[in-house]
Design a protein around this nucleic acid. Structure first.
Lengths: 334, 334
DNA sequence: TTGTACGCGTTATCAC
DNA sequence: GTGATAACGCGTACAA
């Protein structure tokens, strides 16, 4: 069963033609007679020939790999986001003959990314998360490595693909306010994540839009909440303050909050309503079902990959791509 | 800032030596004068030289990539297992100068893996899950590609790294039985996964060990449970049958079960006890805390990678590596 | 200790 | 339409 890795040269000799001819037949490039083309292709097919991408890469200075940068924190394992993203990227890349090389960036350490780039192991890179002051992004730009960022950034020149978090959060918050809620709280994560800022702005957009009507809305915003303990303390405070609705920026926080409420035997939505700015399977099975926003993460990855491959082909691509969302009103709020 | 990718040849010309000398200085192999070595190394350092791994690979028929095979089902996104695994693999590989190439295998479709292998893009492969009749495993063996399987398999010749699921499940079940439980139920997932079988055997081991004492243990075993609906139906039946303790084979099932119990207002552990054969952050924050087994998944990935790299270096490695576990008795059962 | 020459498998550039 | 031949960047016998 072991195949002896035949080369373009083997085929040439067997068929008494030149390497050039075989190469042309395989690639479809250049002038070549229909008959010889068929002969070569048939032979290649019959003998399970597959070109050596490494050599091809050496000749064209390409690798047919794209780098995917993942945050290496333990916390990411909680979130299905990156895996779904990966699925979209991997599928699309595969279709175009590319493979995906992994790099984990942990905190300030981006040595894995640096190695991959220095070793020229990838033709381009996809960042799966953006920070307000993003070191990997700066690095890639400095090195002149083509890359696409999943998530938004202020920078005008980098190619970005993102869900429209701001509009989505504005919509959801708006719906909540329309249902008559006044004392509304927002719990969010790391302020350095661009997405945190966008969600916050969407929230504020909705507040502003509803504030004009002379309504006495009392918002509370709590950022940089990053573990279960903080959620517990904050929840306690909010409940004492008779908050009507707590909006969480992501599922992790929402999961924590629901646990706290369950322990304290606080009824949702009767005593307090709960909503989340992000919907994943983590919350999917919860009782009661949580009002939240749905994004197609696999599509996000797919689109990012598509943009990157286009760039590698020398095409011009649009700087911003915003993908849609779906607001899901469910039992927990609204 | 853009570096103009200088080559070994550029250095040779600049220093008026031959490529060979430079190559030797860089690799450390072969005899070379200390002074010239320093000169070359200094120059390389100063000009940020980094070797072209592609060319190197072509010359030595190596890629310095290892393939990591992930199941491409949507369900995997639920489980932090694969991400933690990835972390361990990626960290270890990186330390040894290797990178990780992703391949997703979905159902019967392993075209991504086949492409990666056919294109000689990896030196070896790590399978992150084993099936009873594993097609990717057969494929890799046929092709003669070095690989390590995370998880166990009957096959005597493949190198395997796994947690000792059987012993772990025996221990946990034993503890539960010792605490006086008699009507105990086991809910498990896909029977085709080897790990499902191992957990089942551990469960049965414990039953056998405690059955001898003339105890009237009434076990119930339910496999191939794969979605929330099935869990709900099964839970209903078990509760009517006055089951004392429900053991879930993994966190996903356990999460579903807890949701059902919460909805039906069934008290844990007062009315029914709950335990899980796998502990992850998914359950970590649950109230009450769930009795379960803990594995160090990152260590698992690290070990698998270590074994594979050893194989690539031509070393002989042990066929089976079993890593430990920790039984965590918590409020929910025991 | 250092240098020469060739091979790795492919594409690109010419000439025929 | 087809075929030599030279890159691509590096490792490595073998020679000096």
């Amino acid at each position: 069963m072991e195949e002896k890795n035949l080369t373009i040269d083997d085929i040439a000799q067997a068929l008494h033609v030149s390497k050039t001819t075989v190469s042309r037949a395989m690639s479809g490039k250049g002038r070549i007679g229909e008959e010889t083309r068929r002969r070569v292709l048939d032979y290649a097919e019959a003998h399970h020939y597959s070109p050596n991408v490494i050599a091809k890469g050496l000749a064209q200075n390409k690798t047919f790999n794209i780098g995917m940068v993942l945050p290496g924190d333990y916390r990411i394992a909680e979130l299905p986001f990156f895996q779904n993203c990966m699925l979209g990227i991997s599928r699309f890349a595969s279709l175009q003959g590319y493979d995906v090389l992994l790099s984990m960036v942990t905190g300030r350490d981006m040595s894995q990314l640096e190695r991959v780039v220095a070793n020229r192991k990838v033709d381009g890179v996809i960042l799966t998360r953006t920070l307000v002051d993003d070191a990997p992004m700066r690095y890639l730009r400095d090195k002149g490595v083509p890359f696409v960022a999943i998530g938004s950034t202020d920078d005008g020149e980098t190619v970005q693909v993102d869900n429209d978090h701001r509009s989505a959060c504005r919509d959801l918050t708006g719906r909540l306010l329309e249902s008559g809620i006044r004392r509304i709280a927002l719990i969010g994560g790391d302020e350095r994540l661009v997405v945190t800022g966008n969600r916050l702005r969407g929230f504020e957009d909705a507040l502003a839009a509803h504030g004009g009507k002379g309504a006495d809305i009392e918002p509370q915003i709590l950022l940089n909440v990053d573990d279960a303990d903080k959620v517990e303390r904050i929840a306690g405070g909010l409940l004492r303050g008779r908050t009507e609705c707590i909006v969480c920026m992501d599922d992790f926080l929402c999961g924590c909050l629901l646990n706290v409420l369950q322990t304290e035997r606080v009824a949702v939505p009767d005593r307090v309503q709960v909503a989340s700015f992000y919907d994943s399977s983590v919350l999917g099975n919860r009782i009661p079902a949580i009002t939240s926003i749905q994004f197609d993460v696999e599509a996000l990855g797919r689109k990012a990959c598509e943009q990157l491959l286009r760039m590698l082909d020398g095409e011009e691509v649009e700087r911003y791509t915003l993908l849609g969302y779906r607001v899901c009103m469910r039992e927990s709020a609204g």
